[in-house]
Design a protein around this nucleic acid. Structure first.
Lengths: 112, 112
DNA sequence: CTTGACACCTAGCAATCCAAGGTGTAGGTT
DNA sequence: AACCTACACCTTGGATTGCTAGGTGTCAAG
């Protein structure tokens, strides 16, 4: 249940999943759905272009293979991809903790 | 240090800050900077249009005033604004914990 | 032979953030 | 007098992004 609104952090998700083990697009979508416990149920039109973008940026490479008559494009991280991953992990941590600080509320108008 | 990339969650931040106490745009920017400990240093071109958007959506109302020769537009939450805030808080929680689950890594490939 | 899961793709829209410009006041410095 | 900085508001236009909506094709089950 739920779907949209993972604004801007998609790259991090994709890099993290593929870093754990190389995967093809369709499998990435499934993994994202199961790991997030159904929170992230991304349409193909979101994921495929994003993978292309990441490859074009030099973070992923891909290999074509054929499994039971279906062609697959399997992605894996480059060295730059690993660097980008740890960088984006870090900036996610900073971002989410900053969100936490803001959402917690003003400290001083109610301080006695 | 740092600035860009708070993708999509700006509305929540603005609603949360104004909910705590009504503020004008410039003050919102300052509050955002201090609460986040410099993580969020948003340009006016980001914040002002967002406030207009939120008002147009019925989440905020505004009042003009003049303080020492400077005109201010002070925003405060409507009933819908409060509803939107708690809704968006909730979906942020869900979002960030889903991010956490995904980033934590696959549970089964290393399970003995 | 149709449906559904698997597996890939693209074009084009809508939204969002931001850079870059603009206006004007008040208070200080030179 | 001229200038700068902080305060305080605004808009236009570009780039990026996520998704809708379409398309292709295979294989297995009904």
């Amino acid at each position: 249940m739920r779907g949209q609104a993972l604004k801007g952090h998609l790259d991090l998700l994709l890099l993290a999943i593929i870093a754990d083990s190389p995967k093809h697009g369709y499998a990435v979508i499934e993994e994202l759905r199961t790991r997030s416990e159904e929170s992230f149920d991304l349409p193909e039109g979101t994921v495929y272009p994003a993978l292309h973008r990441l490859q074009k940026a030099g973070f992923l490479t891909s290999e074509w293979s054929e499994v039971q008559g279906r062609r697959r494009r399997t992605y894996l991280l480059t060295k730059h991809g690993h660097a980008a991953l740890s960088e984006q992990r870090q900036s996610w941590d900073e971002f989410s903790s900053a969100m936490g600080r803001v959402l917690k509320g003003a400290p001083w108008p109610s301080t006695p």
